[in-house]
Structure formats: structure tokens, C-alpha cells
């Protein structure tokens, strides 16, 4: 009889500033699969973890926003490459998290990989599509160019643990923003595994920070944080949305409201999410000799 090998179980931690810390609070919470069986303990991030994540995101912003669009495109494409290489692992995690069948989970993972490719191609086209040269009535050259908003707090969808997550994170970082993401509360494990992909794809530390834990606990701190420029409410608890929007008003954050009807993450995204995290800058200079 061959001896049964004991598998090495993974400790799921947070992803902040390119590192994998536990919650400073020392808290964790049990994560179960779709049928209720125990999968792992996830770190339960605290207010302080959220603030650390904002600090990391702010620190990463100057470098990432100043990186060339070509460079950002290659990094995003690299994420797709590394994700593809770990496809089977994600299929199994999405199956466990969402209770999807093998084919369905496979399709979701494929769509998530393809979404990175789609956004990778956007980095160097955003300015051409959305920017403009302005034909002003005077002896001036005027142009407008889209720029990233800054640090974006993202409440990731609660249902779609990988494709939904990728669909809200990629449009934030594609243009040079940095992100603090609160993952799906009940289905956080694919997000943490995704952070391993991000960490090995040349994405600078701090560009994406992932927090697992209680959305309702973390969201108010991010909504009112003065160094957060925008808030994506996609995965916000229904009953908390109004309060979160009100808190965001305290520093005039850009708020992306949760959709009226649940989003179909398998559809081609369009540019609405990408545009939501941009500022238009108009520059003027006189012409003359």
C-alpha cells in the first residue's frame, strides 16, 4: 500500500503593497464552498489594513500613472499570460467558490483571462479615443487628455469571484489608477490566488491591493477616506449604498454606483467603467512667433 501524501494547505492572506500580510487585527474567518464545506480561513481585514492599503496605493500611484501606456499594456498582458498558465487552479477555485460545473467554471476563467487581454490593448488607445485637440476661437493650441483619477476603492462583486473581480479591477488600473479592492466576502479565495498572479506579472507592488473580510465593515472607512479619489460600489451591500455615497460626498469622490440590474460579466464591457475613473485635463498655450 502506497502511503497517502498529505497536501500542503495554503494560508490565504491579504495583498497589500506587493506583500502578503495577515490582517494586523489577527482576525480570520472561515470560507466555505458552495455546498457549505470548509475551504480555508481567510484574513479578515480591519480598518487599519484598509488604511495601510490606501497608503500603499497612493505610494504606487506616481510610478504607475507615469509608466508609459506601452509598459502598462505589457504588464496587463503579462497578467493574462500568467493567469493562463494557472488556468486549472482557477477553474477549481471558481468551481468551489461559485458551485459552477467544470465547463461553466472553465468558461468563466477563460473570459477572465481574455478580459485582461482586452484591457491590455486599451492602455495606449484611451487618450486617442477620448482625448481631443480643441479648435478654440483664438491664437492658442489647446488639447485635452484623459488622466487617471488616483486611488480608487473598489467593492468587488459578491457573486462573480474571479471574472467579476477582474472586470472591475482592470478598468481601474488600465489608465494608471491604483486600487484598493474589497473582494467578494463569501467567495474571496480566487481573489487571493489572483493576487499571486499579479505579484508575479511585473505589476508594481501597491497598484492593486486586495482585502478580504466583511464588506460592510471595510467600505465605510474607504468611502470616507480623504486620500481615496473614487469609489466603485458594485459589490456594496444594498442597505449600505446610500450611506456610502453620502460618506463619499465628504471629499467629492467620484462614485460609480452599483448597476440597477445585476451585470452580466461575460459580456464585452464597453468603456463606461474605464471612463468612470478618468479625469480630463485641458492644456492651453498661445501660438505665435
Amino acid at each position: 500500500m502506497s502511503e497517502h501524501r498529505v497536501a500542503v494547505a495554503k494560508t490565504y492572506k491579504l495583498y497589500v503593497g506587493g506583500a502578503f500580510p495577515r490582517s494586523e487585527s489577527g482576525r480570520s474567518y472561515p470560507v466555505t464552498d458552495h455546498a457549505g464545506a470548509f475551504l480555508a480561513n481567510a484574513a479578515q481585514a480591519s480598518r487599519k489594513d484598509a488604511r495601510d492599503a490606501v497608503v500603499a496605493a497612493r505610494k504606487a500611484f506616481p510610478g504607475w500613472s507615469a509608466a508609459t501606456a506601452y509598459n502598462r499594456g505589457q504588464v496587463l498582458y503579462r497578467v493574462a499570460e500568467v493567469l493562463e498558465g494557472r488556468r486549472e487552479q482557477f477553474v477549481s477555485e471558481v468551481r468551489a467558490a461559485e458551485g459552477a460545473g467544470a465547463d461553466e467554471a472553465g468558461a468563466l476563467v477563460d473570459a477572465a483571462i481574455d478580459r485582461w487581454v482586452w484591457y491590455a490593448g486599451w492602455t495606449d488607445k484611451i487618450a486617442a479615443v477620448l482625448g481631443s485637440s480643441n479648435p478654440v476661437a483664438g491664437p492658442y493650441f489647446s488639447f485635452s487628455t484623459p488622466e487617471p483619477t488616483g486611488v480608487v476603492a473598489v467593492l468587488a462583486p459578491q457573486d462573480s469571484s474571479l471574472l467579476g473581480l477582474v472586470s472591475v479591477v482592470a478598468p481601474v488600473i488600465v489608465s494608471g489608477n491604483t486600487a484598493v479592492v474589497v473582494t467578494s466576502e463569501e467567495r474571496p479565495l480566487p481573489a487571493i490566488t489572483l493576487s499571486e498572479v499579479l505579484a508575479t506579472s511585473d505589476l508594481p507592488g501597491g497598484v492593486v491591493n486586495l482585502l478580504t473580510g466583511r464588506t460592510a465593515e471595510l467600505a465605510p472607512w474607504l468611502a470616507s477616506h480623504a486620500d481615496v479619489n473614487a469609489l466603485d460600489l458594485t459589490g456594496a451591500p444594498e442597505e449600505a449604498r446610500t450611506d456610502l455615497e453620502r460618506a463619499a460626498a465628504g471629499t467629492v469622490k467620484r462614485v460609480l454606483r452599483s448597476p440597477v440590474t445585476p451585470e452580466d460579466w461575460t459580456r464585452e464591457p464597453g468603456t463606461a467603467r474605464l471612463r468612470a475613473h478618468l479625469e480630463m485635463k485641458t492644456v492651453w498655450h498661445p501660438t505665435g512667433v
Binding site: V136, A137, S142, S144, M280, K281, V283, W284
Partner: peptide, 17 residues
């Protein structure tokens, strides 16, 4: 800043966001 004026200031035009 949303509008940057270089070697000029306070210029406005309907075609310029």
C-alpha cells in the same frame, strides 16, 4: 488640475473641456 494654462491664463472656449 483640470485646466492648465501655459504662458496664458483664464482662457475659455466651448470646444475645450
Amino acid at each position: 488640475a483640470g485646466v492648465v494654462w501655459a504662458n496664458t491664463f483664464n482662457r475659455f472656449d466651448p470646444s475645450a473641456p
